[in-house]
Simulated scan of single mutants.
Amino acid sequence: MTGTAWILLLQGAWVTLWISGVSIALGLVFGLAIALLRTARIPVIDQLLAVYVSLARATPLVTLVLFLFLAAPTFGLSLDRNAAAILALTLNTTAFNAEIWRTAFLNFSPEQKEAALACGMTPATMFSNIMLPQMITTSLPGLVNEMTFLIKSSPAVAIIGLVDLTRVTNRISAVTYEPLPPILAAALIYMVIISVLLKLQSMTETKASRLAM
Rank of each mutant, 00 (worst) to 15 (best):
N145Q: 10
I172H: 04
S173A: 15
M135S: 14
L165T: 04
E146Y: 00
I183H: 10
M203P: 00
L91T: 07
Q134Y: 08
L68E: 04
I130S: 12
E111H: 11
T125L: 14
P133L: 12
R167Q: 14
Y190A: 09
P110E: 09
F67A: 09
V65D: 02
I172N: 08
E111G: 11
E114D: 14
S173N: 08
A158F: 07
E178S: 13
L117D: 02
L89M: 13
L197E: 00
A72V: 00
T103D: 10
L61V: 01
V62P: 03
N145I: 01
A116R: 05
T74P: 00
L200V: 11
P181E: 05
E146A: 11
A71H: 06
N129K: 15
A158I: 03
M121F: 12
F67S: 03
A88F: 09
D164N: 08
R102M: 05
A84C: 08
S109I: 03
P141A: 09
N145D: 11
A186W: 03
G76T: 13
L68R: 01
L87A: 14
F105W: 08
I136Y: 03
V168I: 15
G161K: 04
A84I: 08
I130G: 06
L132R: 07
V168G: 04
S195I: 00
A85M: 08
S154A: 13
V144C: 06
A116F: 04
I136P: 03
T125K: 13
L66E: 00
L64G: 02
T137D: 10
N82E: 13
E146V: 00
L64T: 07
P73F: 12
N82I: 15
L91H: 08
Q201W: 01
Y190F: 14
A118G: 15
T122E: 05
L197F: 03
M203Y: 06
S202P: 00
I159H: 01
L91V: 08
I160V: 07
L79T: 12
A115R: 10
T125Y: 09
G120H: 07
V157P: 01
V168D: 09
A118D: 08
A174P: 05
V192C: 11
L165R: 06
A83F: 05
A71E: 12
P123S: 10
T74E: 15
V175D: 14
M135N: 04
I172Y: 02
W101N: 06
L150W: 03
T122G: 05
W101R: 03
S154T: 09
K152D: 00
L64K: 01
T137P: 00
C119A: 14
L184E: 07
M147T: 02
L165C: 12
L70R: 06
I130V: 15
F69R: 00
T166H: 11
I151D: 00
V196R: 04
A72G: 03
S202D: 13
L77S: 07
A104L: 05
L61N: 04
A156K: 01
R167D: 11
V65N: 01
A158V: 04
T166C: 04
L117W: 14
A83S: 15
